[in-house]
Design a protein around this nucleic acid. Structure first.
Length: 642
RNA sequence: GCCCAUGUAGCUCAGUGGUAGAGCACUCCCUUGGUAAGGGAGAGGUCACCAGUUCAAUCCUGGUCAUGGGCUCCA
């Protein structure tokens, strides 16, 4: 018998007679730990508690307190789900069941597909299997044997997965009772460890994510270490629902959509006030950063889209129309239009860079299933700009753009940005030299701004690499809004050129760039980020002036007039209601400032100020109030509600 | 586009094979009230749309459209 040394995370080293299992080590440390251990980590690799240790190692025991432990819980719960389904529906076929953020899913092939109503029954069976506390055992099998094994079981999807693994490798299987699944593991030692879970919903999902394949039934679930964490998770879901821009858009009277215009938005006066505040802000950004605003036709002839390449790559997403035998398309992008403006007259290198900006209205015939509120629509408006420049100017332009984008996001209350560099895809145009140069320029611009970025190899556009900017909202979700892309293709296709210093004709590089992306979607993000309580500068109604009783009506009207004259968006509330009723209704509308006027204020020429959140600032003069509000607006101040 | 679910008053939702209800919102009246809902009365719906079954359909069946959750795609 040999003795081995095991180093624990606290640095202590214990000696044991070898071999022994991870579980036995846990037992030797304490029965509590033995019970809590879900897996082990040997020299940094996650393993089952049944794993034999035969030599000197460092070992950490993984429990549900570790993030990895929670992942194992979720993964094992996915297996538990599959186990329950196979018991209830032996004819169902299992496929894959990975861990996702906050939970897991498992895809099944079953006809008819499972519905939400089946979930209760499945969940009950899962709980029963937990009570049986069945050991979960790992076994190895040669690959070819494993393929035969699953084919015999009638599990063609499993067999297909294994078939894609090299023949030389052994396959690990996990058995709990009669249920056997292919899995890398590790898993909890027994089903009794799985306590806190809930099946949440079902959805369709294509086998291997390919829309040409069979549609499977995906069952989603969530699992946590403790009941409290599960409750907190469900609470977060409820919170996201409370902030849903579709609900708030209706409640705050910002916009609506209706059946006759799927994927198109009707902007109400308040929603349009918000929109205009953003558009005017972005117009100022254009103006102050060397962009010239332009406006192009909505509808252009097919021949132009063929030249630009859109017809080939995009035409199933384009709305078309005809007039007098000619075929036209409603623009899905703004770039070809901007090139037409660039192409008027003869350009000199002295003019470059030329920057065009547009609030470009685009239409794309998105699949009906992709539509979602104002986040994903068929008619949308981009803060779209195109910079025509030389190759040598790319880096400077990109660098300036990154800085500009950060300032803009900060003004809207987004301070955390993720940067991603998408590089050359398999199918592309342009020489290696140009790609090298373009990618290097983008990389240098990122480095120059000292930002960390993730590389997305092969995810660039066919015409050039791009940087994606993802912002993080108050619920921790990320959204890709901004982008800048280097394009070496379209200017040539559409015949753009400029006269260089040596009098030769050269083709400019085109940078496609957007900061907000789609105005519609950005507004949706803002609404959810702020839970509808928009910062003062964006709030559709910035203040409401409410009277206590009828005799202050004229005074209220005067205050409203004065505030409006200062450019503030203000409304009067002269309704025949008690002040508490009025305050409640404006609080629900998330109005930043409520100005209450009774006999005292009308006598002293003041207003009583109540700010959003319920704080009472007491009475002040209109002048003082205006100064305060203007300072707040100028600072773009605003905090997302917790 | 694909899978599943849903569609009843402006909103949130009950409900039934015999042509429909609640709360809030809305209108009018009373009340003139000091910081998150004062009281009363009233009006409001071809039960998404189109077929079918039935003596009779909002309810059952089929189809269409839209919306929601996903998949694929994507700003």
């Amino acid at each position: 018998m040999t003795v081995i040394k095991i180093e624990l995370p606290d640095g202590s080293i214990r000696s044991y007679p070898a071999p022994l299992t991870v579980a036995e080590v846990a037992q030797s440390i304490g029965p509590g730990l033995a019970k809590a251990a879900l897996a082990g980590k040997i020299d940094g690799n996650l393993v089952d508690t049944s794993t034999l240790i035969e030599k000197d190692v460092s070992l950490a025991l993984v429990t549900s307190k570790d993030p990895e432990g929670v992942e194992i819980l979720r993964h094992s719960t996915a297996h538990l789900l599959a186990h329950a389904v196979k018991e209830l529906y032996p004819e169902a076929q299992v496929t894959i069941g990975p861990v996702i953020d906050n939970g897991f899913y498992y895809d099944f092939s079953h006809s008819p597909p499972f519905t939400e109503e089946d979930l209760g029954r499945i969940e009950a069976r899962m709980e029963e299997i937990v009570r049986r506390d069945i050991p979960v055992q790992r076994a190895l099998m040669p690959r070819d044997e494993a393929v035969d094994f699953f084919l015999q079981q009638g599990e063609k999807y499993k067999a297909e997965i294994i078939s894609s693994i090299p023949t030389t490798e052994d396959i690990s299987l996990y058995r709990q009772g009669d249920f056997i699944d292919l899995c890398r593991g590790p898993h909890v030692p027994s089903t009794g460890k799985l306590r806190v879970f809930k099946l949440t919903h079902v959805a369709g999902a294509y086998w291997r994510g390919d829309s040409r394949n069979e549609m499977l039934t995906r069952v989603y679930g969530t699992a946590w270490a403790t009941k409290e964490e599960l409750e907190a998770h469900l609470h977060r879901i409820a919170e996201a629902e409370r902030r849903d821009h579709r609900r708030l858009g209706r409640e705050l009277d910002l916009f609506h959509v209706q059946e006759e215009a799927p994927g198109m938005v009707f902007w109400h006066p308040k929603g349009w006030a918000l929109w205009q505040e953003i558009e005017q802000y972005m117009r100022r950004v254009y103006r102050e950063n060397g962009y010239q605003e332009v406006r192009c036709p909505q509808i252009l002839e097919r021949s132009l889209w063929e030249k630009s390449g859109h017809w080939g790559h995009f035409h199933q997403n384009m709305f078309t129309t005809t007039s007098e035998e000619r075929e036209f398309a409603i623009k899905p992008m703004n770039c070809p239009g901007h090139v037409q403006i660039f192409n008027q007259g003869v350009r000199s290198y002295r003019e470059l860079p030329i920057r065009y900006g547009e609030f470009g209205s685009c239409h794309r015939n998105e699949p009906s299933g992709a539509l979602h509120g104002v986040m994903r629509v068929r008619g949308f408006t981009q803060d779209d700009g195109h910079i025509f420049c030389t190759e040598d100017q790319i880096q400077g332009e990109v660098s300036n753009f990154i800085q500009l984008l950060r300032r803009v996001y900060a003004d809207f209350g987004f301070d955390e940005i993720q940067y991603k560099l998408a590089t050359r895809p398999e199918s592309r145009v342009g020489s290696e030299e140009i790609w090298n140069k373009a990618e290097a320029a983008l990389r240098q611009a990122l480095d120059h701004n000292a930002v960390n970025y993730e590389e997305l190899p092969g995810e660039g556009a066919f015409y050039g690499p791009k940087i994606e900017f993802h912002l993080r909202d108050s619920l921790g979700r990320t959204w890709q809004c901004g982008t800048i892309q280097a394009d070496f293709s379209m200017p040539e296709r559409l015949g753009s050129s400029f006269v260089a210093a040596d009098n030769a004709r050269q083709i400019p590089v085109m940078l496609h760039r957007a900061i907000l992306g789609s105005l519609e979607r950005f507004i949706g993000i803002l609404i959810e980020h702020y839970a509808g309580a928009l910062p003062l500068w964006l709030a559709p109604v910035q203040a409401v002036v409410a009277n206590i009783s009828e005799s202050q009506q004229d005074y209220v009207a005067g205050v409203v007039r004065r505030l409006r004259a200062e450019g503030l968006r203000v409304e009067a509330d002269l309704r025949n209601e008690k002040i508490s009723y009025k305050i409640r209704s404006h609080s629900l509308q998330k109005i930043p400032y409520q100005l209450v006027v009774g006999e005292r204020e009308s006598q002293s020429g003041q207003v009583a100020v109540r700010v959003r959140g319920g704080k009472d600032l007491g009475a002040m003069s209109v002048e003082v109030l205006v100064a305060r509000m203007k300072a707040e607006i100028g600072a773009h101040a605003g905090e997302p509600l917790a």
